[in-house]
Design a protein around this nucleic acid. Structure first.
Lengths: 341, 341
DNA sequence: ATGAAAGCGCTAACAG
DNA sequence: CTGTTAGCGCTTTCAT
């Protein structure tokens, strides 16, 4: 079993000290002026016997784990799953591993998870934070750990983050609907105090204000059970038959919305126009295809990971960086019709 | 910083030995006949100062990490993302954490990942194995680590696994198409030697044989670039205009297929009927809605995790269990039309 | 240029 | 019932 070979074994095999082996393995041979000959001998043996340093022991000693903790809202959500995948790839290339978990936007669960990450000695955190987690994040930062937020941020905590321009995105999408001749435009979203949601809400409201249109806002409590989303959504639409366009606040509520609309037999875009936040297969393939606000997933992941690696590699506590990326409004059939007025 | 508090500190604070503390913390107070009074005192202090055992040191010492390694093909695929989410939840309840990674079905990458998991001392493995990984898995098992496979398995390695009845699923789906009057039924899938794919292929072939129908099989090399899937798929359909029904071998190829069909302007189900493996939102919402073979995701995850926990908790090497679950054919509009003959 | 030895925080024989 | 002590495998200071 190569599992049993330790640094001492290979030192003994060569009749040298484990210190020397350690130096060689950590690329400090030059610095320590160890003979090239010895270095080669050690490297050769290591390869032969397939010796692998025990990273647990290493971490215990150094306090570094080469692990990054990734906390998303829900890994089964395509947006987060894709981000996670890209982050994993980038981190892997750099020798870092990812431990991920889903917070469910639950503060208590997130605190517990931070605790778990802490005692696994993760080197850094990437998270889409839930509410009321400010204190915990501050503690993390105080103890010197890099934290990068994404998707949303905590206004009262000074961290790096990568977000998209949510407010302009919904503003722009709403203006698009208005230009297409729609006037009773609803914004259907999850009830949330998080920055990304507030921004989306504001973008929507601002766009309406310009034309003095009346807002139709429906906030739904998040629930993992789809029925509990579709039901109030359906009720709201029935109660407000005048609505001629809907902007959905997230992909999940957008998908649920489509299902409801299909059930109700409403015609899109004739009876009602639709735009959703986040873009993916469902929206492209739907008939009619659904106009959607696409987040630049690759760019988000790239920025997150390079922000984190920068902090990780220079342990100096530089100033924080806040990156805002822009989205794309993919106009499709669900929001395009002849002008109505 | 509560991070700095160690078991010695709390022992000193109470003027007792760290052994005693260790015993109490590990619930062996009873067994070691430590006075209830002392136990309470220790527990109280631990809570007060917020002491958390360093799990790294613990793992180094015990060889147990309470971490499970989860290797999926691609975490951004909805099927795997959902399974991962459910497994995470179940494992979390039991005090286990998950480290996941995507293998991309790449043998070399998987071997590397196994190496990484090994030196992180994961307690067990859950994996959707790529090909040619038999040796590595055998080594794992030999070293006493529980391994549970899912989605597919390695015929020449005796492990626990949880799969679905792939062969019957495609047999059944194909029979459904035949009953609906289709006769030139294509099976479009990724080229693969993996068990689940072979079984799906066999199910399709067997169903055709009963009616002596000619098979139309198109195997496409997997690629992360969608264009390289859509392009050969499109070419195949153009070259075989006679095809009146398609069974897609996986969700991903099904989604790509839908895009191609939409581009080509083919009418579903009049020109061509469609059934896909794996069921999710895209298929339900598509117009016409797409008939799909739904895997029992929850049951799969439940079975995986309970199989693994069973092995983990009784370190006896019991006999392996092989679990096959059945799928559901969700019949929708894409495959239903008046009989043609 | 190389090695001895201390110690990271924890568990578990072995003593008492 | 509680404490002493020896490691787990590694890094790193300090000698030589």
């Amino acid at each position: 079993m190569n599992k049993k070979i330790s640094i001492v074994d290979i030192a003994n095999l060569l009749n040298i000290s484990k210190t020397t082996v350690s130096f060689i393995l950590n690329g400090r041979a030059q610095e320590k002026r160890i003979s090239e000959e010895l270095v080669q001998k050690v490297l050769k043996l290591v390869k032969e016997v397939g010796y692998k340093p025990n990273s647990l022991a290493k971490s215990l000693r150094t306090g570094k784990s080469n692990i990054i903790g990734l906390m998303v809202e829900d890994i089964s959500n395509p947006f987060f799953a894709n981000i996670a995948r890209l982050i994993e790839d980038r981190a892997y290339e750099k020798g870092y591993r990812i431990i991920y978990c889903s917070t469910d936007n639950d503060t208590a669960k997130t605190q517990e998870l931070i605790g778990m990450f802490q005692d696994r000695h993760v080197d850094g955190y990437i998270m889409a934070p839930p509410k009321d987690i400010e204190e915990d994040v501050r503690d993390l930062i105080k103890s010197g750990l890099p934290v990068v937020m994404f998707d949303r941020y905590l206004p009262n905590v000074d961290t790096d983050y990568v977000i998209v321009d949510n407010q302009f995105s919904t503003y722009n999408a709403t203006r698009h609907l208005i230009e297409q001749g729609y006037s009773k435009i609803a914004f259907i979203t999850f009830s949330s105090e998080q920055t990304q949601m507030l921004d989306r809400m504001n973008g929507y409201k601002n766009a309406l204000k310009e034309d003095k249109l009346k807002p139709y806002i429906k906030e739904i409590d998040f629930n993992r059970n789809e029925e509990l989303i579709k039901e109030p959504l359906s009720a709201y639409l029935k109660k407000n038959p005048g609505i001629d366009a809907i902007l959905f606040g997230t992909d999940h509520i957008g998908t649920c919305g489509l299902k409801v609309i299909n059930q109700l037999g409403v015609k899109v875009p004739d009876d009602i126009a639709i735009v959703s936040f986040d873009d993916y297969d469902v929206f492209e393939l739907h008939s009619p295809s659904v106009t959607a606000i696409a987040q630049p997933i690759e760019a988000i992941a790239d920025n997150i990971i390079s922000l984190l690696l920068k902090k990780l590699e220079s342990n100096s506590n530089q100033t924080t960086q806040k990156i805002t990326l822009s989205t794309t409004l993919n106009m499709r059939n669900s929001s395009q019709q002849a002008l109505k007025r």
